[in-house]
């Protein structure tokens, strides 16, 4: 069953998105580590949008849509502005991140690790991150 949530771009709302995704996955009987991976990938993409696209401006909004069809979970994250090309991201080695004492640089790597398909649809005033996770 398809479901959507729209939230303001405040980092405090990441928990709202995670609760929404967790509840929906539970209804689809997707549980445990697999459910956490899907929640994590969505959380990473949403926090990236909130922090880097909107500077956590609570007047902006993002929308998360979920659908389950034929053993595949489909995720759409709709945001305004220009998309970061997360599908073309070149990951840093974890030892380099440690050596440089960086706090970031792992979120997009995790999305690419978890999701089977990643697409970005850029339209005039917004973009959509489209993720698919095959469960079969």
């Amino acid at each position: 069953m398809k479901q959507e949530i729209q939230v303001k771009c405040s980092k405090g709302n990441l928990a709202l998105i995670r609760d929404f995704v967790n509840r929906w996955l539970d209804e689809q009987e997707v549980k445990g580590v697999l459910a956490n991976q899907i929640v994590l990938a969505i959380d990473e993409a949403c926090s990236n949008c909130m922090i880097h696209h909107h500077n956590c401006d609570g007047r902006s909004k993002i929308e998360v849509g979920l659908n389950y069809e034929g053993e595949t979970i489909y995720v759409e994250i709709k945001d305004s502005g220009k998309a970061f090309p997360i599908d073309q991201y070149k990951p840093q080695a974890i030892n380099d991140i440690i050596r440089k004492r960086n706090k970031g640089g792992m979120g997009i790597y995790l999305i690419n690790q978890i999701m089977d398909e990643i697409e970005i649809e850029q339209q005039n005033d917004h973009f959509i991150y489209k993720f698919a996770k095959h469960l079969g």
């Binding site: 995670r18 956490n36 929640v39 994590l40 959380d43 990473e44 926090s47 974890i94 991140i97 440690i98 050596r99 004492r101 960086n102 706090k103 970031g104 640089g105 792992m106 979120g107 790597y109 995790l110």
Partner: peptide, 17 residues
């Protein structure tokens, strides 16, 4: 209950020091 890359990043960023 839950950790994201931002949470792990905190530990990683202090590890070298």
């Amino acid at each position: 209950k839950y950790i994201s890359s931002a949470g792990i990043g905190v530990f990683i960023s202090h590890l070298d020091e």
